[in-house]
Amino acid sequence: MMRPHRRAHAALWTALALLLPLAVLASLLAEPRLSADAPPVRLDPPAGGGAG
């Protein structure tokens, strides 16, 4: 009962340990983009001055 459990556990965590750091890195490096219907006046600075 425990051996298959340990194999599944190892597979899951190996996958998470590889995928999650990659995903976090990719999203940190991604250029923030406003969605097409974003309002023209915004508080967040990356939009380029906005309401500032």
Partner: peptide, 24 residues
């Protein structure tokens, strides 16, 4: 109950792609 690991992965992606995206 091992699916909690999947839930954790989804939460990390939820935060990474949402509030964290672009190093905000």
């Amino acid at each position: 109950h091992m699916s909690v690991y999947g839930a954790y992965g989804a939460v990390v992606l939820h935060v990474a792609l949402g509030p964290m995206a672009g190093g905000r």
